[in-house]
Design a protein around this nucleic acid. Structure first.
Length: 403
RNA sequence: GUGGACGUAGUUCAGUUGGUAGAGCACCUGUUUGUGGCACAGGUUGUCGCGGGUUCGAGCCCCGUCGUCCACCCCA
């Protein structure tokens, strides 16, 4: 027997229904906000992720499904969705149009990690990317949208917020931080010592408790924002306050991908184990440029589908469609033709084997059908059908053509 | 990549100091030969993850391997 690869999962029955429900709900809401569907390839040039996600990130350095294809190209399976969408945006030269463009996507992402609760090697994200809108109002709008999606799915969450500054204020802050970190370098964990050179900002969200206590006195990003970033952050928090959206400012929230600036946010759940981030995103005004497009501000986010699967409250299932069955062999053929006709309007289940009356009733019940439609000796003889509404329990015996 | 727990029927799980494999649920049939969900009765279901080893004998002990789960790490 061939089983799925490690960290990869098949979805069937209730699970696939949940999956669909999540995608449908998120899609419906994204469309209301003006987003249109974009589909991009799962396989991309490795260089794309090196330049966008970042050479120093763990995702790129150790988690990518990377290989050489038969044409000798260095390719990899997408570990996240934003890079591909931005690449598509630039490839289509949409960066040369003054229009604002908004895209939503969903699909499989791949990261070669050790599987655990809420973390698979092949997993799914639903995401949105808004291009061309530099206003912080868009940041607010996108956070509101995620909130609406979670509300529609019946999911509780906590919102964490931070500002990562911009190309004006971040570099000076980074220098200050490196200076501070260097003085306490020997007390930091090995990872953090390395990060001082490679990616000092990441030291801020180190999970090591001694590192965290050392950082208490380190300069905070939020206190070193330039005038514009500071103003935007204030505007954002004020809007969230007035919209009654609860949030907490987490000065150590640093997105794991290098391309973020200004607003960064993370939606967290305390009910799903250690992998608690259920959605994350923020502004990435420089990424289009990094990928050879014209300067274009952008904001986006992604929701981890697997992480919210067990949190979603599904709507009550309702009886739907028709169950067709016969108690005599000659009754089956007419039912097949009836099925074709009825399938133009509703779900139809046909039992191919003649069975006892009671078996058919059970079968109709199991199939979740609203109507149980049977042919017995009487019905076969006089060209009628026996029809029972399993919900109201009403019965009829219409002519076959009239039904 | 590191650590821990686990792997027995379709599924959830029992299985004693090593002695020929068990239950609930599900499924099928019947009680009821034309009225579902409920009840009762009966029935089907196994490479005990895989490969070695110890033993007269291994689901149980030992080694290896694959996988699952959880945590670290990372992140959605």
């Amino acid at each position: 027997m061939i089983n799925p690869l490690r960290g990869m999962k098949d979805l069937t029955f209730q699970e696939s229904q949940r999956f669909n429900h999540i995608i449908e709900t998120a899609t419906t809401i994204a469309k209301r906000y003006g987003y249109g569907y974009i589909e991009t390839p799962i396989l991309e040039e490795t260089a794309l992720f090196r330049r966008s996600v970042g050479d120093s990130s763990d995702i790129v350095t150790k988690e990518m499904y990377q290989f050489e294809d038969k044409g000798g190209n260095d390719v990899c399976m997408r570990p996240e969705g934003t890079a591909g969408v931005v690449r598509a945006f630039v490839s289509a030269k949409l960066d040369r149009q003054p229009l604002k463009q908004k895209f939503y996507y969903y699909g499989s992402m791949f990261r070669y990690e050790r599987p655990q609760k809420g973390r698979l090697r092949s997993f799914h994200q639903f995401g949105c990317e808004s291009f061309g809108e530099g206003s912080v109002y868009e940041d607010f709008t996108i956070i509101t949208m995620i909130g609406q999606i979670f509300q529609a799915l019946g999911i509780g969450y906590e919102l964490k917020l931070n500002s990562l500054g911009c190309s004006d204020c971040m570099p000076t802050y980074k220098r200050d931080l490196v200076t501070t970190l260097t003085t306490i370098e020997e007390e930091l964990c090995g990872d953090c010592q390395r990060r001082i050179q490679s990616n000092p900002i990441r030291v801020l969200d180190c999970k090591n408790s001694t590192c965290q206590s050392l950082l208490a006195t380190a300069p905070k990003l939020i206190d070193h924002l330039c005038e514009s970033c500071n103003q935007d952050f204030k505007t954002l928090t004020a809007l969230l306050d007035s919209a009654d959206i609860a949030y907490c400012v987490d000065t150590h929230l640093v997105r794991g991908l290098d391309y973020y600036n200004k607003s960064a946010f993370e939606f967290v759940s305390d009910q799903i184990g250690a992998q608690s981030a259920i959605a994350g995103g923020g502004r990435y005004d420089k990424l289009v440029e990094y990928l050879d497009g014209k300067p274009t501000p952008a904001v986006g986010f992604a929701i981890g589908i697997e992480r919210i699967m067990e949190l979603v409250q599904m709507p009550e299932p309702t009886r739907e469609g028709i169950y067709l069955g016969s108690m005599v062999a000659e009754g089956i053929a007419p039912l097949l033709h009836l099925a074709t006709r009825k399938r133009q309007e509703t779900k139809v289940t046909v039992e191919y084997n003649p069975k006892g009356f009671k078996s058919h009733m059970k079968g109709a019940d199991k199939a979740g059908a609203r109507y149980c439609v049977l042919i017995g000796e009487d019905e076969l003889a006089n060209g009628t059908l026996w029809v029972k509404d399993l919900q109201t329990k009403e019965e009829q015996t219409p002519n076959r053509e009239a039904f």
